[in-house]
Design a protein around this nucleic acid. Sequence first.
DNA 1: ATCCGAATTAACTCATATAATCACAATAAG
DNA 2: CTTATTGTGATTATATGAGTTAATTCGGAT
Lengths: 261, 261
Amino acid sequence: MSFNNSDDPRSTAVDQLEAFGLSTYAARTFVALAGLGEGTAKDVSALAEVPRTRVYDATAELREHGLVDVQQSTPKRFTAVSAETTGRRFRREYTHRADALTEALDGIEPVTPNAEQRGVWTVTGREMVSDRVVEFVDGASEEVVLVTLDALLTDDVASALRSATDRGVAVRVCGMDFSATEGSGDRLPDGCGFESSRTWSGVPAGRLLMVDRSRTLASVVVDGDGEHPPGERDETAIWGAGDNNSLVVVLKAMFAWLNGE
Amino acid sequence: MSFNNSDDPRSTAVDQLEAFGLSTYAARTFVALAGLGEGTAKDVSALAEVPRTRVYDATAELREHGLVDVQQSTPKRFTAVSAETTGRRFRREYTHRADALTEALDGIEPVTPNAEQRGVWTVTGREMVSDRVVEFVDGASEEVVLVTLDALLTDDVASALRSATDRGVAVRVCGMDFSATEGSGDRLPDGCGFESSRTWSGVPAGRLLMVDRSRTLASVVVDGDGEHPPGERDETAIWGAGDNNSLVVVLKAMFAWLNGE
DNA sequence: ATCCGAATTAACTCATATAATCACAATAAG
DNA sequence: CTTATTGTGATTATATGAGTTAATTCGGAT
């Protein structure tokens, strides 16, 4: 009658271990050993739902990952490393993997960085949109104009804006809510040249971004019924690049109009 | 005739992406798009070895990971995010996973932390041994005595020793080589009370660790022919816990003898 | 409007990996 | 010596995913 609640520490631990590339037997064996502290194959097989004869394979797999130590006695005894050590191991390994991946991809990317582009691209997901915003701001060389909901101005975005300012890019940010300009004034560099947030009443809530007058992004929070913390609500964005890109032309005009008023 | 050299950026990128849980089609599609910057299913299928009809599955998978944007035209066009964004995405996701794993495991670990233990446990691998050293030092409450090869005194170990000192643990460290005491004097806290490294001439090179006089570890570098940078060479360690543990008793006596001389 | 070719989606087959079972050898205790 | 238990190896079943094929949709040309 062991129910697999997702809030059960054991099942979450198993899930994460499998995400880190372990087999289910190895994952279950490890959490069993973490609970036991120390035990034999029989102990593990009784606690975790792993066939006794497969515990040896599972512990061998875990041993190669440095997660289990073994006592050469009969019966063999197994012990798991601490929770902190486990986390540290995987954190390091996958940080290295991410570094290697970034480096490898850097050696692949095309010579033509971001030429003219005809169409309009779509992204969905709050985090995904934030990634694009950061990517575009990181690529800015002259100017960044951003209008955003306060709740969508995450630390990632704020730090990207700050580093852009630091390297001499003219950054202008404006919040769509009332709280934006004051509440996060300390997280942002100076230079929010826009007028009050009343300008944006009636505009679909989300973000508007223009970088170097040649890359623009517009997003809306779907199911945005006005509740303040969008939280889990999804966000959908479109973006385009190139001086003659239709979306770029439209947003460029829009920003110029707002600025001129 | 496309040879799969392991130093080829493309194949390393594919390997890493697969380690991050992507299917091989998705991984190959992504590196193809990273090289193209932008392209259709046909383009991808020509460059990466992915059946054209499966490029759509692959890009859908990539889209859910926030790695690819789509242009809703015919033919559909796909584009990959930058190398930096890719790395940032996975780095964040797997850092969160490691945190969740540590937290879940913390809620599982047994009440009896580290009681008396009869036998002796074995670990192999330089990194694995370092992990145990860090784990034991982190668990120290009174005293740490460590004798180690200079090359095995990694930053992880050094910082663990420092934080132990900071919380009031008496830490004594001694290098087995001549260079140890001087070369890394700045990385370590004060209190290396041992005599010169001549004491250890003839002793198999590796590490000796004693924590609170109740947990000890001894390691040797296998194939240790005396060359200074052990580099890839493997390390094998044994450790034990408990006041009456045989290994603890032996090493306790050994340290007492060295100290008394 | 209709036809044709390309693009896209969906369904299917097959291979590989891994979960699960079984049979047997080795070991320790009675 | 017998017997229960432990460890190792081989075997089967199943599920995932790679690879292929067919069916549908779509845009452009007749």
